Computed example of a mutant assay.
Amino acid sequence: MAGTTSPRLETAAARVRRFSPAERWVHRMTAILMGVCVATAACLYLPQLAELVGRRALVVTVHEWSGLLLPAPFLAGLASRAFRGDLRLLNRFGPHDRAWLRRRTRRAGKFNAGQKLYAGWLAGAVLVMLGTGLLMWFTHLTPLSWRTGSTFVHDWLALTLGVVIAGHVGMAWADPESRRGMRTGEVDPEWAEREHPLWRR
């Protein structure tokens, strides 16, 4: 009995480290702030939710500040070497990524091509939403045509963001091991070899 190892310890030892605590914190805080932005936007634009929630002025304030704070987790994460390393991986697009997009291979590094495109698109969308939101917030600083254009872009991009984020959540929900990796930082080695073989090797 003294020389045996429990199955739980053996399983934990066999798992592969995928994300550091800092990376998971950035993801979690970004998800919370984005969720607040989307929820408050829905309360502002859907009459049924607006009537249910009420207190429009408070909802507007929460929406504005959650949007303003959205880049904060990313900026704080830059202090982490692991987070900066993942950013470098997300910014590189190789031949295997193009093959992955054409469905010719499942070969992927730590992030597949879909994850890289999603991360890049989301970063750009957040910047545009932040810029247009500021133009709408400080109405006295810009001409009416700018505010009108900002409102149009902000509203339609918000709708697009909602759809894309719903797709992201749906794909994560369909992959329990991926969710476990973001929740605990570790993944099953067989999953890593199957889904991200270039990173695993």
Rank of each mutant, 00 (worst) to 15 (best):
L134E: 02
R18W: 09
M129K: 02
A123F: 14
V62Y: 08
G149F: 12
I165L: 14
W199Y: 07
E10R: 15
R179K: 03
L70T: 10
G149V: 13
A31T: 12
R180C: 02
R15L: 05
V163S: 03
G3Q: 12
G167K: 08
A22S: 11
L49K: 05
M136C: 09
A12Y: 10
A2C: 01
M136A: 10
L141P: 00
G185C: 06
W121M: 11
L52A: 15
Y45E: 08
A123V: 07
S178I: 00
R104S: 11
P189N: 04
L44I: 11
G133Y: 05
L134C: 06
L69A: 15
G3W: 12
V36L: 15
R200I: 00
R56K: 14
T61W: 14
W156T: 08
F138A: 12
R15I: 03
D188C: 06
A31P: 01
R8P: 00
A13Q: 14
V62R: 11
E190A: 15
G149W: 14
L49E: 02
V36H: 04
S145C: 00
M129E: 06
V126F: 11
E23M: 11
T132H: 09
T61A: 15
S66E: 04
A31L: 08
R8E: 15
F74V: 11
L78D: 01
R106V: 04
G185S: 07
V187N: 05
G133Q: 08
E195C: 06
G77K: 02
G85Y: 04
W137N: 07
L135D: 00
G167F: 07
V62D: 07
R18D: 03
W173M: 13
T142C: 03
H96F: 10
F138C: 02
G149D: 10
M1A: 13
R81S: 06
P143S: 08
L122D: 00
R55Y: 13
V62H: 10
G131Y: 05
A13E: 12
W100K: 08
A22I: 06
W199L: 06
R18M: 07
H140D: 12
L159I: 13
L161M: 15
T30N: 12
F74S: 02
R88A: 13
A76E: 00
V169Q: 02
P143D: 07
P47T: 08
E64I: 10
R88P: 00
L161P: 00
L75Y: 06
V128E: 02
R15N: 04
R179P: 00
L70H: 04
G67Y: 06
A22H: 04
I32M: 10
G170Q: 03
L75G: 01
L58A: 15
V38L: 15
E177S: 07
G85N: 06
F19Y: 15
P21L: 07
D86E: 12
L198K: 06
R8V: 10
H96G: 00
Q48E: 12
A172V: 07
A82Y: 01
E23Y: 09
L69G: 02
R92H: 14
G120A: 14
G131N: 03
W65T: 04
T151P: 00
T139M: 09
P7Y: 10
A76T: 03
G162N: 05
A158F: 12
L89H: 13
L130M: 11
G54C: 03
R15D: 03
R56D: 04
A108V: 10
L135R: 05
V163R: 05
R102Q: 10
